[in-house]
């Protein structure tokens, strides 16, 4: 297979792996935006959020959610595999370290991507167990008498536990940190950054990270403050 050989060579190169990290990162970034906008439906009430959840589970005759799951799993898998390979090579590229270390411009976030990434991975696992794999069996009965899972109730009950809410908020802080470097990095790696657009891209990245952070943490905070009631 000629194409497979080409792909192997592409993956073996530094820029090839970086492009894969950026592409998978971009997929995850777009997912985060969609996921957040979906989450915010909670402010429209129990009916709206449960309608939305039902819609997601029935899209494309129930296939939609599985296509998204497989795609996201693939993106996360590629992202982690390539970043681990890159990080290992980076470590191997300088065995003798500087006795006097100094940093000119690199942000803290950019130097700790592997740490924030690992924390995000732990969060993703907890989050999936919490709301997807082991949800509680609360039910919501519509006025038409239709019985369906009560996603709204599950989220509010979940966040009424202060420790759980705190864990979500801290995890979102790490996501925000990861994105504060990651978003602008995508433009650089994929080749869409110029002298003129550099500042704009940097602020877009910070803005995006802040939006994802504030939007998501607003939900546990609203539950804890009692704005969203069971």
């Amino acid at each position: 297979m000629k194409l497979l050989e080409s792909f192997k060579q592409f993956y073996a190169s530094s820029i090839g792996k970086k492009l894969l990290v950026a592409l998978s990162g971009a997929v995850l970034l777009l997912f985060l935006l969609g996921h957040l906008l979906g989450n915010l439906v909670i402010y429209l009430g129990r009916g709206a959020l449960n309608d939305y959840a039902e819609f997601l589970h029935h899209a494309l005759h129930g296939m939609g959610v599985w296509i998204a799951r497989v795609g996201l799993l693939g993106a996360v898998g590629i992202h982690i595999m390539a970043t681990i390979h890159l990080a290992a090579q980076n470590r191997a590229a300088r065995h003798s370290r500087y006795a006097y270390e100094s940093t000119q411009t690199a942000s803290k976030a950019s130097r700790t991507m592997i740490i924030s990434g690992t924390i995000i991975l732990c969060f993703i696992i907890f989050h999936l167990l919490h709301f997807t794999i082991l949800p509680n069996d609360l039910k919501d009965v519509t006025t038409a008498g239709h019985v369906r899972p009560d996603v709204y109730g599950m989220v509010v009950k979940g966040f009424q536990n202060v420790l759980v809410s705190l864990f979500y908020i801290v995890s979102m802080a790490f996501v925000c940190f990861h994105l504060s470097h990651g978003v602008s990095s995508v433009f650089q790696t994929l080749g869409f950054r110029s002298e003129k657009s550099a500042d704009m891209i940097k602020w877009l990245g910070h803005g995006y990270a802040a939006f994802i952070f504030l939007g998501n943490i607003s939900i546990p905070i609203a539950v804890l403050l009692g704005f969203l009631k069971f």
């Binding site: 530094s14 300088r94 000119q104 950019s110 991507m113």
Partner: peptide, 19 residues
């Protein structure tokens, strides 16, 4: 780029220390 990789240089992480 392949010659660069062969010599064991690291990978760019877009931190712009070089610049």
């Amino acid at each position: 780029v392949r010659a660069m990789d062969d010599h064991g240089f690291g990978n760019c992480t877009n931190q712009y220390e070089c610049e």
